[in-house]
Amino acid sequence: MTDQESSGGLDRRTAMKAAGATLGMAAFAKAVAPIVEWTTTGGSVDEFLQKHYRELTPDQLEVVLRRIEAETLEDYGAKVTVEDVPPLENTKFGYALNLSVCIGCRQCAEACHEENNHDRASHNSYIRVLEMDKGSMDMETGRVDYDHAVPQSDKFYMPIQCQQCDNAPCVTVCPIEATWKEPDGIVTVDYNWCIGCRYCEAACPYHARRFNWSKPEIPAAEINPDQSYLSNRIRPQGVMEKCTFCLHRTRKGKMPACLEACPTGARVFGNLLDPDSEIRWVLENKRVFVLKEELGTRPQFYYFFDE
């Protein structure tokens, strides 16, 4: 090869490289277009830079709450209030459920669906009701997809939701402290901090956690406007959520939506630290048990039978 040829080859090669690089850049721009589109319409810079809930000052939190209200109005066309409802002093919430009277009607699950602004398409709820064979406590005999009149005489019914464990595996495994146990015993999620790795969902032994596989869809008219930051506000896409014992209600002295919806009075909710509470009476006078006690999760959700 002569010098001339080699330098000509080099020029051609450089030109080819430049052309290749240009084409490559164009293809790359095309490839990442959905991300660019999502960053310009999906979330704000303020949201991106937002600190962890527990590190926000009252002023900063105020700004965040108003921003979420504005986002809800823009995205869903609904005027809502998003509050921060702090835990009550000397309170630890507990829940008990009477399996003798539960008829498996799933009104609790339905009430949860509405109260907590769940995605309508997937008909999500924090409560699953198992229909179990009498004579067995093995969940392997249970079904959640039963579709017939209830109650069936040879079955009993076991609603399952977050057990608000004192030793919660979901809290332990979260890499970024996006989920934690509040002073009143409720395990909460900062929906604006969660990165959506779903490790908590793998860790939970009770199938209590849900992931937002897509952006929740709810018609404006159906949105419950009384919302709180840590509970029933409409969750963003790509983050975890779970039952919060309706803290926006219970921290104000009301009962959880699932309890109010129950037609048989199977549900008992209250403050475990109050010796005169009904929940304490149940724990002291009934034979109660917790689910999967052998795992050491120490649930604060109890089950009992009447006799």
Partner: peptide, 12 residues
Amino acid sequence: VHTWGLQVRDGM
């Protein structure tokens, strides 16, 4: 990369 972009935008 493009498919992942769609996944980020439209959800998992």
